[in-house]
Design a binder for these strands. Structure first.
Lengths: 106, 106
DNA sequence: TATGTTTGCAACCGATTAGTTTCATAAATA
DNA sequence: TATTTATGAAACTAATCGGTTGCAAACATA
């Protein structure tokens, strides 16, 4: 059972759940109201998100509030970092080309 | 057949392929040498990466060089942007709390 | 205490996935 | 021209995925 952040965000419903609870904690029922699937399907998604620690629970009586573990999102950002360096370098290279053209025009 | 960037990067082998060809274009055979799977399995991954435009081909005789389409990676960065705002805000809030504590100590 | 509500979990199902083996095509080379 | 090399694609398989229905547990309320 592979359970990493990348596998978790691969599913569009899970990305939608993440977007939903990003700003405020929500109960499974409230979350499920936003989708055309059953509550149980959403519950399964929440389990996957919880297992890879993208989401945390907060019990309140019989209700459970789910909220985004924003720090885990940084893991994706960290992975992207190496590629960000590449596209920034390429952009700078393009920048140099452009400024060279400008100089030649002078 | 869902074929988006998020589904593409969900597989660890595909992420490894992306890392491999990020800096220099490579042929399928050269890429496959780095994995314990068959060349055909790698070929399938390359097809998926190509279909979602994360990777581009450059034919050279009978060889095909695959390289990373770095601009497509920005799509992930764009998606992360909304959450980056959140963790930066939370960091600033923490920062305010810390400076408030400092002030109180004075 | 009896009933209703919120939730998670198990069992099942069809579709998809990642891998394999086998084959076809196209280019380089003897 | 015959052979080797580089590659993609098809057919098949076991495992996984996302969904469903049904049930049990825990808490709230009448």
């Amino acid at each position: 059972m592979r359970r990493d952040v990348f596998q978790a965000i691969a599913d569009p419903t899970r990305r939608a759940i993440i977007a939903l609870i990003a700003l405020q904690a929500m109960t499974p029922n409230a979350i499920a109201d936003n989708f055309n699937t059953t509550r149980q399907a959403v519950s399964k998604h929440l389990r996957i998100l919880t297992e890879c620690e993208l989401v945390k629970q907060e019990h309140q009586g019989r209700e459970i509030y789910y909220s985004l573990e924003i720090n885990k999102m940084k893991e994706i950002d960290k992975w992207l970092e190496q590629y960000r360096k590449i596209w920034e370098t390429r952009f700078n290279q393009l920048d140099q080309v452009l400024s060279t053209i400008k100089k030649q025009k002078k």
